[in-house]
Design a protein around this nucleic acid. Sequence first.
DNA 1: TATACGATTCTTGCATACACAGCGGCCGGA
DNA 2: TCCGGCCGCTGTGTATGCAAGAATCGTATA
Lengths: 226, 226
Amino acid sequence: MNSEQDSPAGLLLSDRIRLALSDEITTGALAPGAQLDEQQLGDRFGASRTPVREALRQLATTGLVEMRPRRGAVVASMPAERVFEMFELSAEIEALCVRLAAWRMTPVERSTLRRIHDESEAVVARGDIDEYDRLNWRFHDAIYVGTHNSFMVKQAQSLRERMAAFRRAQLRQGGRPERSRHEHGELVEAVMQGDGDHAAKLMRAHMFNASGALEDFVQRIGSDPR
Amino acid sequence: MNSEQDSPAGLLLSDRIRLALSDEITTGALAPGAQLDEQQLGDRFGASRTPVREALRQLATTGLVEMRPRRGAVVASMPAERVFEMFELSAEIEALCVRLAAWRMTPVERSTLRRIHDESEAVVARGDIDEYDRLNWRFHDAIYVGTHNSFMVKQAQSLRERMAAFRRAQLRQGGRPERSRHEHGELVEAVMQGDGDHAAKLMRAHMFNASGALEDFVQRIGSDPR
DNA sequence: TATACGATTCTTGCATACACAGCGGCCGGA
DNA sequence: TCCGGCCGCTGTGTATGCAAGAATCGTATA
């Protein structure tokens, strides 16, 4: 049942627990509302409650888990309403990033963005959704970095991370990867032309399309199971 | 030296420590780069190291403190560059909020915003900067809430909180409260007319003016003291 | 005199111990 | 049968103990 190895790998035990839990939550392996028992998690990771508690506290700060004093921690519930609220902010942040990136990216950064986009052609063609999801990450990351604002990069990444499960889900709606890639293509063109305002509009549309594709999914898993 | 009382007040010890530290950092009482010794903080709050550690971990997640593994925690350093990066994102978030608020606020919310603005007239006239700072908070909070997106409210508040020290500082530049209030007045008008795009432009300008007023201050305290 | 090495000390990271708050079950009474 | 209070149990919140890594200082050597 336990596949963790005791590889300190320079990382603190509490950090490894935090990363592992974060991963399980964002991938959906731990469902919203799931109880997070400290002792039990400690056993699972071969650790005591202390590092587990520290990990849970940090995850609570990022919003991935909710802690009720003296009543333990649960994976944060995600009512459909909150998901779409997050999506709205996310769309605007992404639009902001691409607008700045279109103005500020270096030539090398621009061609990197195009290269990532080109790579995705074959991936979409063969229907490899997991691989496209990874390329999608790299594509948007390249845009964040293109803002040349490292604080913004961090915020955008953390927001995207919190929505990872939903982003992945919407890609499984029929035909969505193809349309997503097409929208990326338009974005690349706008960035290449340095037309930030147009790129921002395209990005907003791109995000709203994703949000729309998501609706079915959210209504299945989104209701607060508490 | 110790003015804390042992008032659980329903709050967990670790939470009270976190709030106290957060306050001392955002007000500038704890300067960037200051060492945060666990034992020492525990003594100061009449607690053991355990709740202190949990508080520090949470503050590290919000970015207020930096933790180097096995080397302790320090108040996050704030190079001028990062401050202005934060300001850039902040300006855009505020612009986004006011744009949405101008479209979505209820009549009651709109008149509340105007009332807060009206209150500030006398406060600015008598030069009470601390009180104006508080009204400023309420003014911007009212705009966040006006987006009717509770996730956005949280993000905007947390960003604003991290910049609290700098926001306060720029208000002490000569003539800045008066100009700030004047800009708020224009914002209120745009919101009243439901002109979100114009309100967003005004807000961006408002934030850049604040950023400009800040420059002197940052160059004094901003350099990384490590 | 400067530098490199080593022991000491200090602080952190984690484990364990203990106290107390919630929660559920049980019992008695209406 | 249903309601309310008592009691024990489970699990969290905090304190303390121990070990290992980092910093510091002193000493010896070039």
